[in-house]
Simulated assay, not measured.
Amino acid sequence: MKVTSLANWRNLHQALGPDYLRIASYNIHGGVGRDGATDIRRIARVIDELGCEVVGLQEVGKLFAHTDEAVQLDVLAEETGMRAVAGHTVVHADGAFGNALLTRRPVLAVRRHDFSYLTCEPRGALEVDVDVAGTPVRVIVTHLGLRPRERRFQVERMLRLLHDLPIDLPVVVLGDINEWLPLGRPLRWLHGVLGYAPAQRTFPAWLPLFALDRVWVRPRHTLLAFAAHRTPAARQASDHLPVKAIIVPGPARPGPDVGPLPAAARQ
């Protein structure tokens, strides 16, 4: 399938109706921008630019708090008018840090998974079922670790999770995969099970060199467009550019879109 350009993404975004899902992934770096300032409302403005009704987030700071201090996820929900679903992975006395999801689509179910590895920073996946014009779509938001062995462990957990899903359920896996090598095993395993995920450079935002942020869709043929969101605001707001996709939800099917589990993930 041809991966469309940002211009084509805009054309499709304007032409397609509510039966299509516009979805994004964005590592917001705790709201810390290129200037070193923490400005969560600047992140909200970038999310508004995306024009997506579902946005998976990573590195959301202060998902909740025991004080009157504004919580980042609450601010994002208020500023964007979207419903927030928290998937915190690091919990402190004054709040939490981790994955989240913003959505304009109805939420059908929420599950949270621990992907933490040994003594490394806790990691996880947020699994949310959303309704897209009557079709349930499972969205999995994740942020993998910095060490190769850690990422392999986490992808094995992800693949086991995917293996147990109904074959006719549309699935979107998105997030900051932290895989710097285009042929790294975690990417190859995910490509093998979900189909190839297009790549565009997203990190660092002001001079992108690495395609760390990905969107996989099952079935693969339902992915119509994919692009990194390159605007002046996005280059300033975080150290990652967001990525966005347009999907036409439909039942998954056996065949080239769905591959077997790698041997490591079957153990």
Rank of each mutant, 00 (worst) to 15 (best):
K2H: 07
L6W: 13
R10I: 04
L12I: 07
D19L: 04
H29F: 11
G33W: 01
R34F: 03
G36W: 11
A37H: 09
R42M: 08
A44F: 00
V54G: 03
V55F: 06
K62P: 00
V90E: 15
H92F: 12
D94T: 14
G95C: 10
G95D: 12
N99W: 11
T103D: 10
R104Y: 04
L108Y: 09
S116M: 07
P122Q: 12
L126N: 00
L126G: 00
V130D: 03
V132L: 10
P136E: 13
L146Q: 06
R147D: 14
E150H: 07
R151E: 06
M158D: 01
R160C: 10
L162E: 06
D164I: 05
L165C: 09
P166H: 12
P170D: 11
I177W: 15
L187C: 01
L187D: 04
G192K: 09
V193P: 03
A197E: 06
P198R: 12
P198G: 07
P208T: 08
A211I: 08
T222P: 01
L224K: 10
R230N: 11
A237V: 14
S238N: 09
S238Y: 02
S238C: 09
H240I: 14
H240Y: 07
L241Q: 02
P242V: 10
K244Q: 15
A245Q: 11
P251R: 15
R253D: 08
D257H: 14
L261D: 05
A263W: 08
